[in-house]
């Protein structure tokens, strides 16, 4: 278990009567980049949100970094943990959203320093220095004092990546990070993600970017109807898909 960053077993999730996750099993090793593909409604985003407990699960178990995520087990039942403890767990997991979700009342730099200062209690000056480094890393050093609405979508998403990295997460979750972007802005975000992968960050990425999946991911996973249908190394996954649903899905997006 020690090597696995994420370990999901038979994860179940309902939205009222809708059974969205029907027993998802997935292991993500330390330093591994896993891309989750699947048609819309297949439950991939929901599963990703379960990993950092933005969604509660209705069955199964998710361990992150060896700790049961969001719950404690009592007599074989899951009991939700105190909010403070869940927050501590979440602080170790970075998340990047489809709609960026930058804080519009703060500058790029303020967005990045917000959590280190107010969650970790990092000294203001140290946080600002680190934030400037991170913004430089995603190519936005000169945009530190600019408000989100003055940035393009691609720039906003890169600030969001820097914001997540500022907490020094052990794991990064990406929820369709390029889906809301104009086509010409996708590349700059993918470049930042690729650089992150090369530095050995553990990443779970929900995306439709097949190119990124092929070049960067260690493993591609297809979700369908709330379960994982097929997984494998990208070259095999994309060239010799086994399951007919995978073939169908890949032919529809390639």
């Amino acid at each position: 278990m020690a090597a696995a960053m994420v370990e999901a077993r038979k994860v179940q999730k309902y939205f009222h009567n809708l059974h969205v996750l029907r027993g998802v099993d997935l292991d993500v090793k330390r330093g591994e980049v896993v891309v989750i593909l699947g048609a819309s409604g297949s439950g991939k985003t929901t599963f990703l949100r379960c990993i950092n407990h933005l969604e509660k699960i209705d069955g199964g178990r998710i361990w992150v970094n060896g700790h049961l995520m969001g719950y404690v087990e009592r007599n074989g039942h899951l009991v939700e943990q105190k909010e403070e403890l869940v927050s501590k767990q979440r602080a170790e997991i970075g998340m990047v959203f489809q709609r960026f979700n930058l804080f519009p009342h703060m500058t790029a730099l303020q967005n990045v320093v917000e959590a280190p200062i107010h969650v970790r209690g990092v000294d203001r000056k140290a946080a600002a220095t680190r934030a400037a480094e991170l913004l430089a890393k995603v190519g936005l050093a000169e945009k530190a004092d600019v408000y989100p609405h003055q940035l393009s979508g691609g720039q906003q998403q890169r600030v969001a990546i820097a914001r997540a990295l500022a907490m020094d997460p052990a794991l990064m979750l990406f929820d369709e990070p390029t889906s809301a972007l104009d086509p010409e802005l996708v590349g700059e975000v993918l470049r930042a993600m690729r650089q992150l992968a090369e530095e050995g960050m553990t990443m779970v990425v929900v995306t439709h970017e097949v190119g990124f999946a092929r070049d960067v991911a260690h493993r591609a996973v297809l979700m369908d109807a709330g379960a994982i249908l097929e997984e494998g190394p990208p070259d095999e996954f994309f060239t010799h898909p086994q399951h007919p649903r995978t073939k169908q899905f890949l032919s529809s997006i390639l």
């Binding site: 501590k88 997991i93 930058l102």
Partner: peptide, 27 residues
Amino acid sequence: IDRGQMEAAKALGMTYGLAMRRIVLPQ
């Protein structure tokens, strides 16, 4: 205020109270 704001704050490790105070209420 967009729900994504609270979610982003929580994903960064903020508790509900902190997220309200720092992120949602100012907006």
